[in-house]
């Protein structure tokens, strides 16, 4: 009489199926197929997608790229705990580099609204989480991997990058900045 006894049919595959079960399975399967289809459809028609571009790198190589960009395009500095952090305004459409390390994001960026940039992200040490607030875009930053994603800011103001992958004792102090101007 129950699920804790052997089934009455010794070959369970031959037991009959009730009507609501069949109807429900069909409805649920259709919904599952729709959910699957939404992902490729969004790649075609949607504007927010994940990057498919990434490279193996090393902390030394990556830091060199960040420093090269910073040297060329720094427009001002901002003091953080007595240290001057460069604010970099790279040209629209260019490659923009940002690195994560214990426990800061470097450098700060100044971008133009409506322009598209190729944003590169990597870590010099442990894993970190790029969480752009209050927009709420979240990416995993993995050391030795350089993620490249295009990004088009469509709002202006001051935006904060929170680290949302636990990275040790000062994890909660690790925030960075992106400024978007007209």
């Amino acid at each position: 009489m129950s699920a804790i006894l052997p089934p009455s049919e010794s070959i369970w595959w031959k037991t009959p199926v009730g009507k609501e079960e069949i109807v429900w399975i069909i409805i649920a399967l259709v919904w599952c197929l729709i959910m699957f289809a939404m992902m490729p459809i969004w790649h075609i028609y949607g504007k927010q997608n994940l990057s498919n571009e990434a490279y193996k790198t090393t902390p030394v190589q990556y830091e060199a790229k960040v420093n090269a960009m910073t040297k060329q395009h720094t427009v001002r500095t901002q003091s953080v705990g007595g240290v001057d952090i460069p604010v970099v305004a790279p040209p629209a459409g260019s490659d923009v580099y940002m690195l994560a390390r214990l426990w800061s994001w470097y450098p700060m960026l100044e971008l133009k609204k409506g322009e598209t940039y190729r944003l590169h992200l990597s870590s010099l040490d442990w894993q970190h989480g790029f969480s752009l607030q209050p927009i709420n875009i979240n990416l995993q930053i993995v050391p030795e991997y350089e993620m490249v994603t295009t990004i088009t800011p469509d709002t202006t103001g001051e935006f904060t990058i929170v680290c949302n992958e636990y990275c040790g004792i000062l994890h909660h102090t690790m925030i960075g900045k992106i400024y978007v101007t007209e």
Partner: peptide, 16 residues
């Protein structure tokens, strides 16, 4: 198991 124990419930369809 609990459906069976508390209600004597039988699975609607073993196959499903």
């Amino acid at each position: 198991a609990v459906a069976a124990i508390a209600f004597g419930a039988k699975p609607m369809s073993e196959k499903v």
